[in-house]
Simulated scan of single mutants.
Amino acid sequence: PHLKAVTLSAAAIQYKVRFSMSTYVSSAPQKDAQPVCLGISNSNLYLACTHGPLNTIKAGDPNGYDSLLFYRKETGTAYNSFESVKYPGWFITTAFDDWEKVEMYQVPTNRTTNFTLEDQQLLPS
């Protein structure tokens, strides 16, 4: 499965996906950004940065979890970027055209790396 980006309108509202963003707490020094994990709500699917296909991550696998972590950095008053923890310099991106895949790219790129967070809700831990 691939995640694709589309501009939401009344005709495309059935394609709306909500993400749950979980903060990752670590004792390691952070790079002026918040480490987060991005999951698709009401599923067991997560965004990951990998070179090659991603297989199921097994509990206790020390090499699997860091591909699920991204540094969330505020890039202006309303925008956020998401950089891979495992592969520094690689960012979640979307094309400016609808129905293109959400993919990882190094910056600079002609794709967008800035995202707004809407309908934010803080859930109890």
Results as ranks from 00 to 15, higher is better:
73 K>R: 15
2 H>E: 12
34 Q>F: 02
62 P>E: 11
98 D>C: 00
15 Y>Q: 13
48 A>G: 07
41 S>W: 02
58 K>F: 01
124 P>F: 15
108 P>R: 13
119 D>R: 14
17 V>W: 00
78 A>G: 09
27 S>I: 00
78 A>F: 02
49 C>P: 00
115 F>V: 03
122 L>T: 14
124 P>T: 15
29 P>Y: 03
72 R>L: 02
22 S>T: 11
44 N>W: 00
85 V>F: 12
29 P>I: 11
99 W>H: 13
19 F>E: 05
103 E>R: 02
85 V>T: 10
83 E>C: 07
81 S>H: 01
75 T>H: 06
1 P>V: 15
48 A>S: 04
114 N>P: 02
72 R>K: 15
89 G>N: 00
55 N>Y: 03
106 Q>S: 07
95 A>R: 14
5 A>N: 15
60 G>W: 02
89 G>D: 04
96 F>H: 11
12 A>L: 12
99 W>R: 14
104 M>S: 00
97 D>F: 03
6 V>H: 11
87 Y>I: 05
66 D>C: 08
120 Q>Y: 07
50 T>S: 11
68 L>G: 06
34 Q>Y: 08
19 F>G: 01
15 Y>E: 09
100 E>L: 03
60 G>D: 10
84 S>Q: 05
52 G>A: 05
35 P>G: 08
10 A>Q: 13
9 S>Y: 05
103 E>G: 00
44 N>S: 04
78 A>E: 12
66 D>E: 10
102 V>G: 01
60 G>T: 01
59 A>H: 12
63 N>F: 02
56 T>M: 01
19 F>K: 10
52 G>M: 05
44 N>A: 08
38 L>G: 09
86 K>Y: 06
58 K>M: 03
83 E>S: 03
29 P>H: 11
37 C>L: 00
43 S>V: 05
76 G>T: 13
104 M>H: 05
6 V>S: 09
31 K>W: 02
56 T>Y: 09
21 M>H: 06
16 K>V: 07
32 D>V: 02
27 S>C: 06
22 S>I: 02
71 Y>R: 14
36 V>E: 07
31 K>M: 06
120 Q>K: 13
50 T>Q: 04
28 A>M: 08
5 A>Y: 14
82 F>C: 00
109 T>W: 01
94 T>K: 15
74 E>V: 11
66 D>K: 06
103 E>P: 05
97 D>K: 13
60 G>I: 03
76 G>P: 00
89 G>S: 11
37 C>H: 03
5 A>D: 14
122 L>H: 12
109 T>Q: 01
69 L>W: 08
34 Q>S: 08
37 C>M: 04
99 W>M: 07
33 A>Y: 07
95 A>D: 15
94 T>I: 13
18 R>Q: 12
118 E>L: 12
100 E>A: 06
49 C>V: 07
